[in-house]
């Protein structure tokens, strides 16, 4: 479980509301190493961090744990060796690099899954998929290319991770 009080102490931000009445405010997010309540040892199934439906993020998002996104993200998502789940309300306009990627919402961009990419029946993806294993459920919407040659995928994910850094400063803007 995530310790929200601890996270609030580490993050300074102004959330962008997805609504018509708010003016744009430019703020900076310093995302430190994520804090969970169980920090002493790695557990077999690490809890997933979550970006809720009211959050709009623009920039490069990196992390070393799994992530569920129900908000909207623009930019790049880089989760080394971890899973990304795009929830049903999630709207992603970004290139994604992760171990496994599951899309239940909408994603436009390139998906690089070292192990697997899964588009559920509610999911919609526009873009190219690079993964040795791709599962697309009947009813899913997809338009793009699927590259299932493993060597290409590992190289692309590793090269993206090595050029990035773990702590990123990102800019949050509201509409």
């Amino acid at each position: 479980m995530l310790d929200m009080n601890e996270i609030k102490r580490n993050v300074t931000t102004t959330l962008t509301k997805i609504g018509q009445s708010h003016k744009a405010e430019e703020v900076t997010i310093n995302i430190d190493k994520p804090v969970t309540s169980n920090t002493s040892k790695e557990t077999k199934s690490k809890p997933l961090a979550m970006i809720g439906p009211s959050i709009h993020f623009k920039g490069e998002l990196t992390g070393e744990e799994g992530l569920i996104i129900d908000g909207s993200i623009e930019g790049t998502i880089n989760l080394k060796g971890n899973s990304l789940i795009v929830g049903e309300n999630g709207r992603i306009l970004a290139d994604v690099f992760a171990n496994t990627i599951k899309v239940d919402g909408y994603l436009k961009g390139e998906l690089h899954g070292v192990e697997k990419v899964h588009i559920s029946r509610n999911g919609e993806v526009k873009g190219n998929i690079f993964s040795p294993r791709v599962i697309i459920e009947d009813g899913a919407k997809f338009k793009g290319s699927i590259d299932m040659t493993s060597k290409v995928i590992e190289q692309s994910v590793n090269s993206n991770i090595s050029t990035g850094s773990e702590v990123k400063e990102s800019t949050l803007k509201s509409a």
Binding site: V134, I135, E137, D138, A140, F142, S145, I146, D147
Partner: peptide, 21 residues
């Protein structure tokens, strides 16, 4: 269009598939 069993079948091979739908 994209179909699950078609993708499952091609997943067993080194493929690059463009689904135009």
């Amino acid at each position: 269009g994209v179909r699950s069993s078609t993708i499952d079948f091609f997943s067993d091979y080194p493929c690059f598939i463009t689904v135009v739908n």
